[in-house]
């Protein structure tokens, strides 16, 4: 089913107690599409991203990836909460990159990349290692394979984290502010890797403040504020000619 969208969010809401963080979000991400989520902090973009791989449980609405409902099974018009094992199986196909990298500090870069394919997919070590070295080379870190994360720069760590996510051969990649914790001169190397991924046809949802990246790489841009989608469209148009006053106010600050 190549025509079905990769991600479909249908009136997704999420509350923490009485605090409603997401209010009826509806959007679609097509296969091979790169979508940038932008907006002020606290607007719910990261929460939405975390809902997509079930790190957060949606309060209401439907969220599906590749035609499969996330976190629930539907039978006889009723929803059944998934067992942790089933949720873990869904997450295998969804790669995630975090703001703070979250590499495993007690493993080398190579071991970080090899861990999930060996433990989760049960693949043989030799094949996984060969593939991991290819991935590290792809993010430009072939020579750093045996370094521990503490001895890598922030940009290098984030690139290892991207390689680690790619090792599971995901069909969708989620980036949660991947460059926000980096020194300015290290941002470029991470964005370059992400741009390469986009070129190779990876479906990506990127929460970011890098408007340059959004303009050049993204196929669509979604502006969120206060838990709702305020405006969305082609990045060049939204950035050049924002329609909503909240978008205008936000962009005037970050551009």
């Amino acid at each position: 089913m190549p025509d079905t969208p990769m991600v479909v969010a249908d009136r997704v809401s999420k509350s923490f107690g009485s605090n409603e963080v997401l209010k009826s979000i509806s959007l679609e991400v097509k296969r091979g599409e790169v979508m940038c989520l932008v907006g002020p902090s606290g607007s719910g973009k990261s929460t939405f991203l975390r809902c997509i791989n079930h790190l957060e449980v949606v309060s209401s609405g439907r969220l599906s990836v590749d035609g499969e409902l996330i976190g629930y099974r539907e039978a006889n018009h009723r929803l059944y909460e998934m067992r942790p094992k089933e949720a873990a199986r869904q997450r295998r196909d969804i790669g995630m990159v975090f703001q703070r990298f979250n590499l495993f500090p007690h493993m080398t870069a190579l071991q970080n990349v090899m861990e999930a394919p060996i433990r989760v997919k049960g693949l043989s070590k030799a094949g996984v290692e060969a593939n991991a070295r290819v991935l590290l080379a792809r993010v430009g870190l072939a020579e750093r394979a045996d370094y521990y994360p503490a001895h890598l720069s922030g940009g290098q760590q984030q690139r290892v984290a991207i390689a680690r996510a790619l090792a599971m051969e995901p069909k969708l990649m989620l980036f949660d502010e991947p460059t926000s914790a980096l020194d300015p001169e290290l941002v470029g190397e991470v964005l370059d890797v992400m741009q390469g991924l986009a070129r190779d046809g990876m479906t990506m949802i990127v929460v970011t403040h890098e408007m340059g990246f959004a303009r050049e790489v993204a196929d669509s841009l979604v502006f969120m504020d206060g838990g709702v989608v305020v405006e969305s469209g082609v990045p060049t148009e939204v950035l050049a000619n924002p329609q909503h006053h909240r978008t205008q106010a936000f962009l005037s600050k970050v551009l």
């Binding site: 790190l55 942790p84 873990a88 997450r91 790669g95 975090f98 590499l103 495993f104 861990e115 999930a116």
Partner: peptide, 20 residues
Amino acid sequence: GQEEAATALGMSWFQTMVRV
């Protein structure tokens, strides 16, 4: 963040505990 990263990779709770 360590538990989150392991979970996002599809590792089970037990694997996350033992390995990470």
